[in-house]
Computed example of a mutant assay.
Amino acid sequence: MPSDLYIGLMTGTSVDGIDAVLVDVGSDHFSLVATHSHALPEALSKDILTLCQPGESELDAAGKVSRQLGRIYAEACGELLAKTNTEAHLVTAIGCHGQTVRHRPGPDGFSVQLGCPDTLACATGIPVVSNFRNKDMVLGGQGAPLVPPFHLRLFGAAGERRAVVNIGGMANASLLDGDTLVGGFDTGPGNVLMDLWTQLHRGDNYDANGAWAASGKINKPLLKRLLRDPYFQQPPPKSTGRERFNRQWLTQHLKEDLPAENLQATLAELTARSIADSLTGFQPQRILVCGGGAHNTYLLGRLQDCCDVPVESTELAGLHPDWVEAAAFAWLAWARWEEKPGNAPVVTGAAREAILGQVTLP
């Protein structure tokens, strides 16, 4: 008989590793049982980032990377289950988001996530739910963000307007008015440009606590140019990714030589301002932050100043910020298994609610 145990796997835009969670979920309960962070081999991360931009022999490269990811996802699941001595047959399904390498919303839109579900299912002996985004896009939606219904389930609070902001490589916001989901969208770049600049100039994967950004000065003319990008004025529903906000995008806006730390401060301000500006019409009373950006104290301080409302970690509302996205895909796997809708048309713009995800049996 199916149990209430599900695994959620997430590799995000930052391509910095696999987040794996084991959750106990049902229509009236949700709890985090175990967590595991699994590193991606550096060569694989490099191959993934190469596939995020158009290039030669993409199909061959994508096929190889997909199989490799399937095997590494299986390793992550094995180590996750070992932490609690949970046997694989007790897990109903794995919700595997996969690694996004292309996201093209619009007419005939599509979204491509790598991570072979057959490899994962056969290696673990557990059914896999994957390909969550494309049905929503076939129905005219953006296919993203998909986490707002889960945010409502966990973080909605009667009598308070809350914005749940996930700051990963990209940033997205869920707008919760009490127990009602009223909207959601990608706000624009989250950590992706800050991480890029840190890697180029300091050799670190990210700017720990935003300390480097805090040492610089915001360049207002550059910030103004960056914020002129049409995406920031585009009304929801909307979603974006590395296809738009990348090194080439940044380079084309640089018209003067700036101290590297000043550019880092400006990129942090871009993330904070673009999030804050996107929330102006909703006027949240509280902002809950998850994702890697929740650890960037400088960025959260700038967001606090821009919004003038409490900015807090989702941990204060019941779930540590590092595990929210992986938990969301465990919840989406549960929704698929129970044949419940997983999307929110008010967020994505899809024509109707739909059951999301394809099931791959071992």
Rank of each mutant, 00 (worst) to 15 (best):
P310C: 01
L316C: 13
V324C: 14
W334R: 10
T314M: 05
A335P: 00
L319V: 06
V324M: 15
L303Q: 11
H320S: 13
L332N: 01
T314Q: 10
C307G: 03
C306Y: 07
Q304R: 14
E325N: 10
L303P: 13
E315A: 15
A328E: 00
D308V: 08
G318F: 12
A333V: 03
W331L: 02
A327C: 15
W331G: 01
A327K: 03
A327Y: 04
E312P: 07
A327L: 05
A333L: 02
V324D: 01
C306H: 12
A317R: 03
L303N: 14
L319F: 11
R302V: 06
E325Q: 08
S313T: 08
V311L: 08
L303C: 11
A333G: 06
L332G: 08
V309K: 02
V309N: 08
D308K: 13
D322S: 13
A327P: 00
F329A: 10
L303V: 13
W323L: 11
S313H: 10
C307E: 03
E315I: 00
V324L: 15
W331N: 05
D322A: 15
T314N: 04
A333E: 02
V324P: 01
A317Y: 06
A330G: 04
P321Y: 11
E312A: 09
P310S: 00
S313R: 06
A335Q: 15
L319N: 09
V324A: 14
L303A: 11
W323E: 02
T314A: 11
